[in-house]
């Protein structure tokens, strides 16, 4: 466990060494949140109601902030792993005394945490100024638990896409399409509550809703039943995707051919 903690710390410190760069990279969230505010401010005004399907403009903006923080702050592991598979540098990671997947998890988390923190602070300041103060602090712990589950689900899918480089030449299209499914079925750009009922049912029966909608919705309108439902869903999908990831990794190792060094 100590070695993974060390990998986590190295990546964390690496990100924090250049705070100005971290801030500049995170500044994109300001653009997105500003545009979202323009869109939803006008949409709420046009609808003539302060509440649409249970969400106010304030709820919608903080929902979108958490969703954007997760999307922009999660590590692009698919790209990293697929490059390691394609250029053979995976060989240098496999001969070290650690588990490859847990190594990726630790390094990804070390990279992701400061980035997500900065995104939340910058975006949060703007959303606060435009839509009002953040949701009650009581909501935060449940949202954080769901956020951790969502991050792990992203990790599993991203790693699976990265490892698919064992079988296919180019993994980028898988990554793009996966991201777009998260956008739509995860409710990243529009909260799932605004979807037609039939689409909500489909979205909530797939893992994407647990990767984005779950934590974001709990952040603005938590309720115990929803929390339990999201937690159970995340655990089930983690068991399924985590098992699949282990299987694909084991199979991939058997296909791996390393020539020279």
């Amino acid at each position: 466990m100590k070695k993974y903690l060390a990998v986590f710390k190295i990546n964390l410190l690496n990100c924090l060494t250049y705070p100005a760069e971290l801030m500049m990279r995170s500044a994109t969230i300001l653009l997105f949140m500003w545009i979202f505010f323009q869109l939803w401010h006008i949409t709420f005004a046009a609808s003539g109601s302060d509440i649409i399907n249970g969400l106010s403009l304030h709820d919608t903006m903080w929902y979108l902030l958490l969703a954007e923080t997760l999307e922009l702050g999660r590590p692009r592991l698919a790209r990293v792993i697929s490059e390691q598979v394609k250029d053979g540098s995976i060989a240098y990671l496999l001969n070290k005394p650690y588990n490859f997947l847990i190594y990726q998890l630790s390094s990804g988390l070390g990279e992701s945490l400061p980035r997500m923190g900065m995104l939340f602070v910058l975006g949060g300041a703007l959303v606060w100024a435009m839509a009002g103060p953040p949701p009650d602090m009581v909501n935060w712990p449940v949202a954080l638990v769901a956020l951790a589950g969502a991050w792990l689900l992203h990790f599993c899918v991203n790693s699976l896409i990265g490892l698919s480089a064992f079988a296919v030449e180019e993994v980028a299209p898988f990554e793009w399409i996966y991201q777009k499914f998260v956008f739509i079925l995860g409710g990243m750009l529009i909260p799932l509550d605004f979807y037609p009922a039939w689409l909500q049912t489909i979205a909530k029966s797939l893992p994407f809703a647990y990767m984005m909608y779950g934590p974001a919705r709990l952040f603005v309108l938590p309720d115990p039943a929803l929390f339990a439902q999201i937690l159970v869903g995340q655990l089930l999908w983690l068991a399924l995707l985590g098992g699949l990831l282990t299987l694909v990794f084991t199979r991939g190792m058997k296909r791996l051919a390393i020539n020279g060094g």
């Binding site: 296919v168 030449e169 180019e170 980028a172 299209p173 898988f174 793009w176 399409i177 991201q179 777009k180 499914f181 956008f183 739509i184 750009l189 529009i190």
Partner: peptide, 16 residues
């Protein structure tokens, strides 16, 4: 594959 992937990517995005 990248070209087809990008067409799908754009199409899926537009569903939003």
């Amino acid at each position: 594959s990248q070209s087809i992937g990008m067409i799908l990517n754009d199409a899926v995005y537009f569903v939003v």
